[in-house]
Simulated scan of single mutants.
Amino acid sequence: MSDTTPKAGLAEIERRLREALSPTELRLQDDSAQHAGHAGAREGGHYSVDIVSPSFTGLNKVARHRLVYHSLGDLMQQGIHALAIQARAPGEP
């Protein structure tokens, strides 16, 4: 990717997660400013997501992360460089 690769927007990330996973709670944060100067910062944004969804019920951590990645689709290849995920089912701490 080039220096001109666009970052994914929080609104687009939120739209895709809401559409695919129908979360009961969703918090997103753009952490890109904390990674300025990092080589990968040119390749897309750095984000954190805290999501609670019934879709995660009965799934382990890896399966939950896969669902999030799948929901974001092409943004994971172009626009998102790093994504910290906290994924829980309803009722989990």
Rank of each mutant, 00 (worst) to 15 (best):
S22L: 11
H81Q: 09
S48M: 09
I85F: 05
L83C: 09
A36L: 09
E25L: 12
D31G: 11
L10P: 13
L28A: 06
L67F: 04
G58W: 02
D31S: 14
L59N: 02
H46Y: 10
K61V: 10
H38A: 00
H46N: 04
G79M: 00
S2E: 13
P90C: 08
E19N: 13
T57P: 10
R16S: 07
A33N: 08
K61M: 08
V52I: 09
G79T: 00
R66E: 01
L28H: 03
R64G: 04
I13C: 09
H81A: 04
A41R: 00
R18C: 13
A63T: 03
E25R: 11
S48Y: 10
V62C: 10
V52M: 07
I13K: 00
H65C: 04
S55E: 10
R18L: 08
L83A: 06
V52R: 02
P93H: 12
Y69V: 07
L21D: 02
V68G: 01
G45E: 02
Q77E: 11
G9Y: 03
I85W: 06
N60H: 09
A89E: 08
P23E: 00
S48F: 11
A89V: 03
H81L: 02
Q29P: 13
T5E: 12
E19Q: 15
R16K: 13
T4A: 14
G45L: 01
E43W: 03
E92W: 05
V49D: 06
L21V: 03
Q29R: 11
L17E: 02
Q78E: 15
Q78C: 15
A8N: 00
R18H: 12
A33L: 07
S71Q: 00
Q29I: 12
R66A: 03
M76D: 04
A39R: 13
D74G: 08
G37E: 05
H81G: 05
A39Y: 07
R18K: 15
A87I: 01
S22I: 07
T5V: 09
T24R: 09
S32N: 04
K61C: 10
L67Y: 02
V62P: 14
L17F: 04
K61P: 12
H65D: 02
R66F: 03
G37H: 04
L83I: 05
R88Q: 14
N60G: 11
L67S: 03
G91Y: 07
A8C: 10
Q77S: 12
G40Q: 02
E25M: 10
E14P: 13
L28S: 04
G44R: 00
P90V: 01
A33H: 08
L67N: 01
R88F: 08
M76Y: 08
Q29F: 11
E12N: 09
H70R: 12
F56D: 01
T57R: 14
Y47S: 00
Q86N: 10
A87Y: 01
P54N: 09
K7D: 14
